[in-house]
Amino acid sequence: MKVFVQRLIDDKVGLFGLIGILLVVLLALLAPLIAPYKPDTMFTEHVLEGPSSQFLFGTDEFGRDIFSRIIYGAQVSLQVGLIAVGIGAIGGLILGLISGYFQGKVDQVIMRVMDVFFAFPDILLALTIIAVLGPNLTNTMIAIGIVFMPVFTRLVRSAVMTVKENEYITNAQAIGVRPSLIIVRHITPNIMAPFIVQITLALSGAILTEAALSFLGLGVQPPNPSWGVMLNDARTYMEFAPWTILFPAVAIVMTIFCFNLLGDSLRDLLDPKLKQ
């Protein structure tokens, strides 16, 4: 573990990503302390003002401080990212473990259902689920979670099938370990590397999907601040008030960029082939 942290610190790109993410997390956690205003306070004399010392990132069409809204928006983005990916990852882990370890008919059924999910584009599938459940934050998270589940299921399944071929699994069977314990003790820990990498990559995907859904008006509902909602609101004014769209867009891009950097670097660090 020590070695791993050391290597992550040595890897400048990964470290940059990690620091960026920690910064966003910090912003989200300390939002009430950092943000100069409440996200929904309207300064009616300062509608669509450009960046100034009073309003760092300018104001939107209702005179709300964009800087404060971005900080509060980080809460939504992270919350959606974590919970949605949590749903997808845990669901995918369970299904993938069952599918990969027992194979046979169970595997066939699970994987064919996943194939059906795979057949739809992410956004379209999420839209359909939200259309059924109704648009709000909770349902957005559930929808994104379901959309991400097939990727995790497939990844876990293939990793399980590789790990299962190792002699230490046969050996565990040969000393009389129960199948459920073999899965928990010997298989799950050994597939964690690709799984963790996929989680970081899925986090950025989930944040992006949330922004896209909110942009389409099906995710977070106004007046709650979400980066996607802000983009949607700014659409009409972007020609003469570009700051309204620029800053939320930069926030999305930078956050996802950081998650991707960390994910890439973790993938290299956790690759057993590159271990000395």
Binding site: N166, E167, Y168, N171, A174
Partner: peptide, 14 residues
């Protein structure tokens, strides 16, 4: 009980 061919992979690395 059983002993396997590959001592390199017969123990769980974790």
């Amino acid at each position: 009980s059983m002993i396997f061919q590959e001592p390199m992979t017969a123990l769980d690395p974790l």
